[in-house]
């Protein structure tokens, strides 16, 4: 490949002879040492490549896990939203357990799914409990159907994707879907999704759990 032609053969030895390697000047090392950017007195420890790889892998894993949790949480939120909207259309005869007493529904739910629903034993005056229904799916989930001042409402409760042990409501989502409104929040490690007929005021629907004398309705 690209070998010199016979009439060029004189060039190779000429170049080899006149472009030979030479010795570096003796003061080169001193010049390098004297340079402001020369080797530092206390050398910086180089981080070996495996450490970089380890850090990078960990960071990717953390991001993936966080993303997974977020996605799962979002999916649960979407699922609970759909279930709550469907529950709003359900008739009382379609419920798994029909009762107008809070304590009975609470006990049934606890026995069926292990979930704790903070229904008071005596509901507020306008609240008419219809019953509860287990939501088919992987994780335990329950819906509670009720009417308030004649309007339909449904509360879907399931385990939250990430544990929130606080007593306060941490609102996640609120939207209007047609004539209905959906709100969701987490509390004590459970995800609550409330669907109700939109009338501009959420406060009445809160009476399901907060029976009027409970100030949490206003705080949260």
């Amino acid at each position: 490949m690209n070998n010199p032609r016979p009439d060029e053969l004189w060039l190779d030895p000429l170049l080899s002879r006149h472009l030979t390697r030479v010795s570096a000047p003796d003061d080169l090392w001193r010049r390098i040492q004297d340079s402001p950017s020369a080797v530092p007195a206390s050398p910086r420890r180089a981080i070996p490549a495996p450490v970089y790889r380890w850090v990078l892998t960990t960071a990717v894993l953390v991001i993936a896990v966080a993303w997974g949790i977020l996605l799962r949480s979002e999916q649960r939120l979407l699922t609970a939203r759909e279930v709550a909207l469907q529950a709003l259309e359900r008739e009382p005869e379609d419920l798994d357990f029909r009762s107008s007493t809070g304590s009975e529904i609470r006990t049934w739910v606890k026995a069926r799914t292990g979930l704790e629903i903070p229904l008071p034993s005596h509901a507020a005056e306008n609240v008419r409990l219809a019953g509860a229904c287990a939501v088919p799916g992987g994780s335990p989930s329950i819906e509670v159907a009720y009417r308030i001042a004649g309007r339909k409402a449904a509360l879907v409760v399931s385990k939250a994707a990430h544990h929130d042990a606080g007593d306060k409501h941490r609102f996640l989502h609120c939207e209007s879907v047609g004539s209905a409104r959906v709100s969701s929040w987490t509390m004590r490690g459970q995800l609550y999704t409330l669907a109700y007929q939109n009338h501009g005021e959420l406060r009445d629907e809160c009476l399901l759990c907060h029976n009027g004398s409970d100030p949490m309705v206003l705080r949260n």
Binding site: R21, S23, A24, L28, W29
Partner: peptide
């Protein structure tokens, strides 16, 4: 320094 002594002539050349 060892690395420098090994390669200084080649780099300089």
């Amino acid at each position: 320094r060892v690395l420098f002594d090994t390669y200084k002539d080649r780099v300089y050349s």
